[in-house]
């Protein structure tokens, strides 16, 4: 009867959990956690630029790039697992690939109910963006992200360091409180930092999403799609119907709303995940044991919701773009 309880390495899970909690309390007493220096721009891992473009300038290896590589590797592994399951010939996928199938199916049904006959065109963007953002957001939860890295000497906001073993050092709290505002010392640059906390990534995704919305709208409606923005026919008939000038102005507002879509897409994802990491830093410093687990659970939820919202908004905007001019008069666009 005891065998039915979940076990890892032959030890019942509850004893393992208890051991980890005790270890956590012990570790937090020996090396008290330090609030890292928080900055919005991603940190550079090297002082030499990777390469320099003539007009744009130098490119540095940042710690969000390593996160991108990790997320890509995870996505490739998922793809490979599902590909193997499909190749194996069984019609009902089992285990992991079954879970992926269920996930994809939920997304596909949602696209079908909104986009109708354009589902095949729109679904790849929805699925790809949702999966990518989901994996990227959840890399935040891997232990060691933001906490393992290289130590950099800095002039202010520094912390003293202490040697653990021959090559490993750790930041420690300065003597007399946590106020390290003007002290020289060291700061930690993590090898990996969540990709969504880099505005370059979120703006790039938002640009792709909004640009492809225009492309799909053009494919669906032909050149007439752009009369949504610059309403020439309304301007042409302005002497017969003077109110057409309002239609023309509304078209100009549509251009503004497309641009504001880029802003809201990118800042929504960036703001949520960056705030999440800052929250984890602060909670981990204040209450190092037990409390971070609750906030990690919150971060799982936030990461899922944000990935879902990013993908779903892309899908909804794309399917609105495929519909004619009359259909979206009531479209509410922040």
């Amino acid at each position: 009867m005891n065998n039915t309880r979940p076990r890892i390495l032959g030890i019942p899970n509850r004893y393992l959990t208890l051991a980890i909690i005790v270890l956590g309390i012990f570790a937090a007493r020996v090396y008290a956690p330090v609030l890292p220096h928080i900055q919005v721009a991603p940190e550079r891992l090297s002082h030499q630029p990777l390469f320099t473009l003539p007009v744009i300038g130098p490119f540095y290896l940042t710690n969000t790039m390593t996160a991108m590589v990790i997320a890509d590797i995870i996505l490739l592994l998922i793809t490979f697992a599902v590909w193997k399951a499909v190749k194996s010939g069984s019609l009902v996928p089992q285990g992991f690939s079954g879970a992926i199938e269920a996930f994809i199916e939920v997304l596909y049904n949602m696209t079908e109910s909104t986009a109708g006959k354009w589902t095949k065109k729109i679904f790849p963007y929805f699925g790809a963006i949702t999966l990518l953002v989901l994996v990227v957001n959840w890399t935040e939860l891997i232990p060691g992200v933001d906490t393992i890295g290289i130590l950099e000497p800095v002039v202010e906001h520094g912390n003293p360091i202490e040697q653990v073993t021959s090559n490993i050092y750790t930041l420690i709290r300065p003597e007399g409180g946590t106020d390290s505002d003007h002290a020289a010392g060291f700061t930690l640059i993590g090898f990996v930092r969540t990709l969504s906390t880099d505005l370059n990534f979120t703006v790039a995704l938002a640009l792709i999403s909004v640009f492809m919305t225009q492309v799909i709208g053009f494919q669906a409606l032909g050149p007439g799609y752009f009369s949504k923005f610059i309403n020439i026919s309304a301007l042409w008939n302005v002497f017969n119907k003077p109110m057409g000038i309002i239609d023309f102005a509304v078209g100009l507002l549509e251009i503004v709303s497309e641009i504001s879509k880029i802003l809201s897409f990118s800042f929504r994802l960036f703001g949520n995940i960056f705030a999440g990491t800052v929250l984890l830093f602060v909670i981990g410093t204040l209450v190092p044991v037990l409390a971070p687990s609750l906030f990690l659970m919150l971060e799982i939820f936030v990461g899922l919701i944000q990935a879902f919202v990013f993908g779903m908004l892309t899908m909804v905007f794309m399917s609105l773009a495929t519909k004619g001019h009359g259909d979206h008069e009531e479209q509410h666009d922040h």
């Binding site: 809201s264 800042f267 929504r268 919701i305 879902f308 919202v309 779903m312 908004l313 909804v316 509410h332 922040h334």
Partner: peptide, 9 residues
């Protein structure tokens, strides 16, 4: 959820 996303933005 869509509306919440807009309001939350």
């Amino acid at each position: 959820i869509l509306g919440i996303a807009f309001a939350e933005a």
